[in-house]
Design a protein around this nucleic acid. Structure first.
Length: 152
DNA sequence: GCCAACGTTGGC
DNA sequence: GCCAACGTTGGC
């Protein structure tokens, strides 16, 4: 089993939105970055756990936990001309973009903020705290995962 | 709203 | 294949 961190803007889709979704399951679609695509297509498996990270907001940080309940499969929003994520270059016969399904597990007792994570050596090496990082999904080691949960 | 960092695109 | 221009991300 692996661990991940997945970013989303709470103004667009936050942890509370996932919690409110019927069945508490949502496809994590619209990702249009090849590095992240590869992770969803090849590495993320059913049963993996992920931190739900709130980005581009007043207090960026880790807000909750979710579970991957469906491994990588083609992102159909890429084929939909009416979708904001439409990509005419993605051929249904050979899909360019992938997504996974996530299920709400729980919110953390408090948001563990980016600024505090940056101060702590226990998460050194995590792309999130590296300058200029733009990965919207990244792997988290078991040690980092457990360390972060001790901060809660 | 600003802007640094970085990915993508496309001309050559 | 290089690289300038452009677009996006995301912290601040």
């Amino acid at each position: 089993m692996k661990y991940w961190l997945m970013k989303s803007e709470p103004d667009v889709f936050g942890i509370d939105d996932l919690k409110k979704t019927p069945g508490r399951i949502e496809p994590w679609n619209g990702v249009r970055n090849y590095q992240v695509r590869n992770m969803m297509r090849d590495d993320m498996k059913t049963g993996d756990l992920a931190f739900f990270y709130h980005s581009n907001c007043k207090e960026p940080g880790i807000a909750g936990i979710m579970e991957i309940v469906r491994k990588g499969y083609p992102d159909i929003t890429a084929f939909d001309p009416n979708s904001q994520y439409f990509d005419p270059k993605s051929d249904p016969a050979e899909p360019r973009w992938y997504c996974v399904d996530v299920r709400y597990v729980r919110k953390l007792k408090r948001v563990i903020t980016l600024s505090e994570l940056k101060e702590l050596s226990g998460v050194a090496g995590l792309p999130l705290v590296r300058r200029g990082n733009r990965l919207s999904i990244m792997p988290v080691s078991r040690q980092q995962w457990e360390y972060i949960l001790t901060l809660e």
